[in-house]
Nucleic acid binder design. Structure first.
Lengths: 325, 325
DNA sequence: CTGAAAGCGCTAACAC
DNA sequence: GTGTTAGCGCTTTCAG
């Protein structure tokens, strides 16, 4: 149906190579030839066949994006940003859902092999050993996971978490709890550590709860545990847990922030909450954008190398935090 | 790097066609030949080149998915389900974000032309005229939008909305409001109508607010309007508005459901709310799955034709609704 | 500056 | 059953 390059060539009485060059190396042709070709292409709404192109050039103009769970509120903004960035450079993005399952994640990844130019692997659930076995290491960029010699984008929650602790302390809180995320999560380790060290900096010893999986229910559950303590403020591993926590507290008749202040992390579902959630904003969207940028620039400049980009975070104060009771 | 079919053939002393047939038409070959080929393929981790395949067969094994906003909580479950379904059939899915912009939506759509076998177009923002101009009408399936002669998947909120009204009436509510969604939304028209007719069925006349865009702020705004009325229960166009509404009410010192009952629609962010939101569950995920199924089956059985699938909805009662005050 | 020809990896007639 | 051959649509030497 669609017109092909050689049909265009035939119509113009030119060779296929000339027409091809009109697009890829116009400078090697007469200006007139180029404009004739372009005009004809326009007229017929000529669209080069991506498969033929990919076959000869070895470039697919596709990038793959693997996330553990598309519906996890952390990822949509990231996917969206990645998609926009890729699109702006003529790339299409495949989105694959790893189903929170290392094996499925691996399947998705290998399924991409050969038909993407690179892949953004977000918060992989697979083991480090497995990560190292991924073919074409130089065409994979990790988000939220660090493995020596693999390029990665990390969101450093440290600063944001420090700000969160400072914020709570300045509101008069002395009994602070950290609601831990998934046991093997890199982000959780980092966030817990940040809370711990900043609390100690203030001469406080935080209560450490968890590990919890990142679900609303887990947050509600944490609220039950918290109800029986002297804690007046809690910092949760992420927004999902934080919102569950708020929910559980309100269920128990406690008010946020009057009875207990709550801080989330990631800043992705803060709009859907009441009260609006104070959260450590990391810019999931930024991560998506930066990851694609790194990939794309590696396509031109060789490999990404062992690049390691750390994205900063900052506390966004809303209304789920207030003075200690 | 990756081994090719002809290299395999050479190694086995077979012709390329034989090796090719070992995969696509094994029944035409000796069982022994087939197993020899398969063994060798296994050994070399042979992966057919998708571009070469697409070029010869004309089948890309790709499907495109266009949504107005990936980060809109309605879509991630849909995308996820679509991706899983497609993957199960060997298809990859491109996800494109239309940015709530008819023009960008069109761009994304045309960008797909030629490298997908079909596309699922969700809640398109473009005009009906424009929709009709989409090339290859028989390879596009609409979700949440009805245009004569174009295949579509519709979520019929009518039943769910009726149940919502019945539920509220049975709780003793007589002053019910409908918080309207975007003016030109097909779903909004349908939902408003359903609420209206069911209220009248009960001899009630609902208050109609809106139109509102689907944002948290709009919901908060609606709460202000509602505060000054006799209304004791509100049904919102969607969960986003409903949650904003709850938020706004609580801000104003009103309790949900004690002072005002709230019902959402779509059932996509109900977990992230306090109290858990009573909502009309439509199964965005189901829509994604069904759309992909329809597309895939059309690839085999010719075109989708003017199929029109209507998905039912039902009320899921949680804790944002209670007896009238 | 432009054309001819080969080939990317695979499939599909058409032979034998 | 299996091999031969001819492309799919494009890019890219290599000539002229």
């Amino acid at each position: 149906m669609a017109i092909t390059l050689s049909q265009l060539a035939a119509e113009l009485g030119l060779s296929t190579s000339t027409v091809s060059r009109a697009f890829s190396h116009p400078e090697r042709l007469t200006a007139e030839t180029v404009s004739r070709v372009l005009a004809a292409a326009q007229r017929h709404a000529y669209q080069p066949n991506r498969f033929a192109k990919a076959l000869t050039t070895g470039k697919s103009m596709n990038i793959g994006l693997v996330v553990p769970d598309i519906a996890n509120p952390f990822f949509p903004p990231l996917i969206k940003a990645a998609q926009h960035r890729a699109r702006a450079h003529g790339y299409s993005v495949y989105v694959a859902d790893g189903d929170e399952n290392p094996k499925e994640e691996w399947n998705q990844l290998t399924h991409f092999a050969g038909h993407v130019d690179g892949v953004v692997l977000c918060s992989p659930r697979m083991s480090t050993t497995k990560l190292r076995e991924i073919p074409a290491q130089d065409r994979v960029i990790l988000v939220n996971r660090e493995v020596p010699n693999m390029p990665c984008i990390l969101i450093d929650s440290t600063v944001g978490m420090h700000q969160a602790v400072d914020h709570l302390v300045s509101l008069g809180h002395h009994e602070i709890a950290y609601i831990g995320g998934p046991a093997r999560s890199w982000a959780n380790t980092q966030r817990r550590k940040a809370v711990l060290e900043r609390c100690r900096h203030h001469g406080l010893e935080p209560a450490l709860l968890g590990p919890y999986v990142s679900t609303h229910e887990a947050g509600v559950d944490a609220a039950r545990k918290l109800g029986r303590t002297a804690v007046t403020a809690a910092i949760a591993f992420d927004d999902v847990l934080a919102v569950g926590l708020v929910s559980g507290l309100q269920e128990a008749g406690l008010r946020v922030p009057e009875d207990l202040s709550v801080v989330g992390c990631d800043d992705v579902i803060t709009e859907h909450t009441a009260p609006p959630l104070t959260s450590v904003s990391g810019g999931a969207a930024t991560a998506g954008r930066v990851a694609v940028d790194a990939l794309l620039s590696s396509f031109e400049g060789g490999s990404i190398g062992a690049s390691r980009t750390v994205l900063p975070t900052e506390l966004v104060v809303r209304r789920s935090t207030g003075p200690a009771r």
